[in-house]
């Protein structure tokens, strides 16, 4: 079932971030939203994930869908180690958490606190958390921040393999990454967010 975003509006302090924004997303594949920082891409993601309720308009096709999301900030709990951070989203199932960390080549770092890890490692823990939750849709907001080019490609390949047959939405400002992995690229500008170009 496709996802229909139908004329949604989101404004903050009188400024429109999304204005009558419409878009149809496929059931599966990798869709990239490519555009500069601050144009409203993350707000669109937050609407899709239910973290922001649009002022008006509707989003259809998301009922009962579980979302995995990799945020721009890693949003890890500083008082829990890597394994506990991942296990948080799978009812403390440590086995599942360890499997996801192993996919991110972090099994040996499982008992490290976030303060003891590098930026790249923290980002991979956040990706492992999204992997462990295994949502119906994967939202990736700048997923390769802090990773070197080789590792970024490896991580994207793992994610695409894990989400086969499901939808991945990718926000990035790295055109090379978008071109390498996305089935559809929407080039956007804003705010308010507007689609400038669609390429497949």
């Amino acid at each position: 079932m496709t996802i229909e975003i139908n004329k949604i509006n989101v404004s903050f302090e009188g400024k429109y971030i999304l204005r009558d924004f419409s878009l149809t997303l496929p059931e599966s594949g990798v869709v990239c939203i490519f555009g500069p920082s601050g144009c409203g891409k993350t707000v669109l993601f937050k609407c899709l994930s239910g973290l922001i309720k649009p002022n008006s308009g509707e989003i259809n096709g998301l009922k009962n869908k579980r979302m995995s999301m990799v945020f721009q900030e890693n949003r890890l709990l500083p008082w829990f180690d890597a394994a506990e951070n991942v296990a948080l989203v799978v009812n403390d199932n440590r086995e599942q958490a360890m499997a996801a960390l192993a996919k991110m080549e972090l099994a040996s770092e499982a008992d490290k606190l976030p303060a003891e890890m590098s930026g790249g490692m923290l980002h991979r823990v956040a990706i492992a958390r999204a992997l462990a939750y295994n949502g119906d849709i994967l939202l990736l907001d700048e997923p390769t921040t802090g990773l070197d080019a080789e590792l970024a490609i490896k991580v994207m390949e793992i994610l695409i393999k894990s989400w086969q047959g499901r939808l991945i939405l990718l926000i990035t400002h790295e055109l090379a990454l978008a071109q390498k992995f996305a089935d559809i690229i929407y080039t956007v500008e804003g705010p308010p967010l507007q689609i400038k170009e669609k390429s497949e």
Partner: peptide
């Protein structure tokens, strides 16, 4: 708030949010 948003997105149960995020 960002941690609470993350927990809400991942549908972490209310009691666990209290125990694991609010309490610390």
């Amino acid at each position: 708030r960002q941690l609470l948003e993350m927990a809400s997105l991942y549908k972490v149960k209310k009691l666990r949010i209290w125990r694991k995020i609010y309490f610390p």
